[in-house]
């Protein structure tokens, strides 16, 4: 059941990104280009998203648990750290360079596979690499050597 709900949610999320044309990086870059070709559409996407999601959160507060599962997790509210702002800044640079963020990148993958795949593979490497580091994994020379060896092995096998 959990999987069915998550699948439906992903499908709906993707449909929303397509209907609003947010999967097109040009729309996003023109929203960010406030001084010249400003296209405010993204603000309306955010607005629509915020209305429904706020209602859903309000509705969920009246419930002890989600439809499936034992309870709602406690989400962090504060904790405005260097890590948060530095991460958001790095993300902002990447987003501003190309106009793709994680959701639109995945939706656009089947639409322009050759180009989007480059972005998505690099994005996953960044996401997973940073996560490994959070688990205490050290990116030293030996680890990089091992990773490279693994990569070349899978390549030669394929």
């Amino acid at each position: 059941m959990r999987v069915v709900i998550a699948f439906a949610s992903g499908l709906l999320f993707g449909a929303g990104l397509l209907v609003s044309h947010m999967a097109d990086p040009a729309k996003v870059l023109n929203f960010l280009d406030v001084a010249r070709r400003w296209d405010p559409s993204l603000a309306f996407v955010m607005g629509g998203g915020l209305i429904v999601t706020s209602l859903a959160f309000a509705l969920a507060r009246r419930r002890a648990r989600p439809l499936v599962g034992s309870g709602f997790p406690v989400l962090p509210r504060h904790g405005i750290t260097m890590r948060l702002t530095a991460g958001a800044s790095l993300f902002g640079v990447g987003w501003g360079l190309i106009g793709l963020c994680p959701g639109p990148a995945l939706v656009a993958l089947p639409l322009d596979p050759a180009r989007v795949a480059v972005f998505v593979i690099a994005m996953l490497a960044g996401l997973w690499g940073a996560r490994l580091e959070q688990y205490g994994f050290k990116w030293n020379r030996a680890a990089i050597h091992k990773a490279m060896k693994l990569l070349t092995q899978t390549k030669s096998r394929a």
Binding site: A86, A88, G94, L100, C101, P102, G126, Q134
Partner: peptide, 11 residues
């Protein structure tokens, strides 16, 4: 850009 988006959003 992909690497920045990945690392940035993870951090």
């Amino acid at each position: 850009a992909g690497l920045l988006v990945g690392c940035g959003t993870a951090l």
